[in-house]
Design a protein around this nucleic acid. Structure first.
Length: 478
RNA sequence: GGCCCUAUCGUCUAGCGGUUAGGACAUCGGGUUCUCAUCCCGAUAACUGGAGUUCGAUUCUCCAUGGGGUCACCA
């Protein structure tokens, strides 16, 4: 049994998409499950679209998700370098063997001519494709034109009238007809390889056994198969993973419909563990049907052939639920550490240890912290009418407030039991409507209709602040 | 539009010829409770359609329809 080796090969052209991270997870898990290696390779062959710091950002986001690679940038490995722009000589050498074996040819067509051809084809309602204008150029003539310094690209000489079949782990055999395949550019005029050339060469040289990538690559896979054949290399196992659809189930998940970068979810208060768990259960279910699972569980069970071959909607509601599950699992120390970046500058830090337990089960994302705690500091701003809710009269509320203030001022100690017992006794003795009374207190001390339990909240606020706010409420009424 | 992939509740799925078609999220009820949340209980809700194959099709085959992907010197 040969060693399982998987890889993820992102390009540094922008922030990594959640779909890419989900695919990366699958590659990671499958390699780990089989005791193999997971390789990270940077596909930076598009110098036009590359963004500054992109290579570094890729490594960072993988680490932020709690994952790592066995070989790749920053790690090394015996099949390096793992950054394609550092492998240009390899591609040039390999593509030359293709030329020598008549599997590829030089093309001198200008971009203008290509555009014209395309326009013509569109006008005739034909599918746009390269018209193979340069395919017939004699090899020696081509060599001469290259030597003369004429600009060129190298194209794949796609065979005619041939069926190209490959096996996809999720779907079985997939067949394309070669006549429908374009003579793909392999080497660009700037000397860089295209994705198609580089991916085949690198996957072979890096001994990748299983190629798990997005479904959007299915239609270019026959080109890759042709290349493997042209090189005389064995074809690896393919597993094309379904794409994420927008939460509404319409169309491939895209920037147009919201934030899609893997980093943005973390920045919005989703836990990496919840994100990973979410990726796990989108399009796959473990044997016992349980949905909350650890990376370890997943690695033990994940098999790409069990993946659903249908594209799946990115259901934010389910993610929210999972995130809540993971937040509730956090120890006080873990929660404090993870939520720190989301704490407002105005929040009184000395109260954090008291506040966190009160809001933990109420957090959907870590970013909810502000909304849930803003009444612990700063001015309250609520409609006076709220104080009167369900009350028979304004006078009653005024009486209630006066009595509670008196009670709190004479409390022997500021303790939860004293405060709660005293207040409850007062309510019972006076026979005030319970719901009305407690809601009125909640509004006057927090300005909110929904808060953590009232007495715990008042304890955290402190005696002075509670009295101040009760008096402010009173003032609003008189 | 051509080519390729695909089709079970609103969503993610289990099912791999015979099931009261199961679970999770969401939704809606109810309970616990000072509100919200948590937690517990319950309910609504699905095999896209049509031909075959078969004693029998959600399950196998074909067609239609729907959905998705892809058609660059981008990955």
């Amino acid at each position: 049994m040969t060693q399982v080796r998987t890889r993820m090969a992102p390009s540094p052209t922008g922030e990594m998409h959640v779909g890419s991270m989900a695919t990366l997870l699958k590659n990671y898990a499958f390699a780990k499950r089989n005791g193999g290696q997971f390789i990270l390779r940077i596909e930076d062959t598009d110098k036009v679209r590359e963004v500054e710091g992109g290579v570094k950002a890729i490594q960072e986001i993988v680490h932020r998700y709690g994952l790592d690679w066995d070989e790749g940038p920053g790690k090394g490995g015996e099949f390096g370098p793992y950054i394609q722009s550092e492998r240009l000589e390899i591609y040039k050498k390999e593509v030359q063997t293709l030329i020598d074996n008549d599997k590829a040819y030089y093309c001198f067509c200008s971009k203008e001519r290509l555009a014209e051809v395309k326009e013509q084809q569109m006008a005739n309602k034909q599918a746009p494709h390269y018209d193979r204008h340069c395919r017939v150029i004699d090899a020696s003539e081509a060599k001469k034109r290259v030597a003369d310094g004429e600009e060129y690209v190298i194209r794949l000489k796609v065979p005619t009238d041939q069926e190209i079949t490959f096996t996809d782990l999720l779907r079985g055999e997939i067949t394309f007809h070669s006549n429908l395949i374009d003579d793909q550019v392999l080497l660009k005029s700037d000397g860089y390889p295209t994705y198609h050339l580089a991916v085949v060469i690198d996957d072979y040289l890096m001994k990748i056994t299983h190629i798990m990538r997005g479904e959007e690559w299915i239609s270019s896979t026959p080109k890759h198969v042709l290349l493997y054949q042209a090189f005389g290399w064995p074809v690896p196992v393919f597993a094309h993973i379904p794409v994420f659809l927008n939460p509404d189930g319409k169309g491939k998940m895209s920037k147009r419909k919201g934030m899609v970068s893997a980093a943005s979810f973390l920045d919005r208060g989703y836990l990496s563990e919840a994100m990973l768990n979410f990726f796990m259960i989108l399009g796959w279910a473990r044997k016992n049907q349980e949905e909350v699972m650890t990376l370890e569980d997943y690695v033990k069970e994940f098999d790409p052939s069990d993946l659903s071959s249908n594209s799946v909607a990115f259901d934010i509601k389910k993610l929210d639920w999972l995130n809540g599950v993971y937040i509730r699992k956090l120890s006080p120390e873990q929660l404090k550490e993870k939520i720190t970046p989301f704490i407002s500058k105005n929040f009184p830090v000395e109260k954090i240890d008291q506040v966190l337990p009160l809001i933990q089960e109420r957090l959907v994302t870590l970013a909810d912290f502000d909304q849930l705690t803003k009444f612990f500091y700063g001015e309250l701003n609520y409609e006076t009418d709220l104080l009167l809710k369900k009350a028979d009269s304004k006078e009653l509320v005024i009486e209630e407030l006066n009595e509670v203030i008196k009670l709190i001022e004479t409390l022997s100690s500021w303790s939860l039991t004293d405060l709660e017992e005293g207040t409850r006794n007062l309510q019972e003795k006076k026979d005030w409507h319970r719901g009305q009374f407690f809601m009125m207190l909640r509004i006057s001390t927090t300005g909110e209709k929904a808060t953590p339990p009232l007495f715990e909240t008042m304890m955290v606020l402190g005696k002075d602040l509670v009295i101040t706010r009760l008096k402010e409420a009173l003032n609003k009424l008189i």
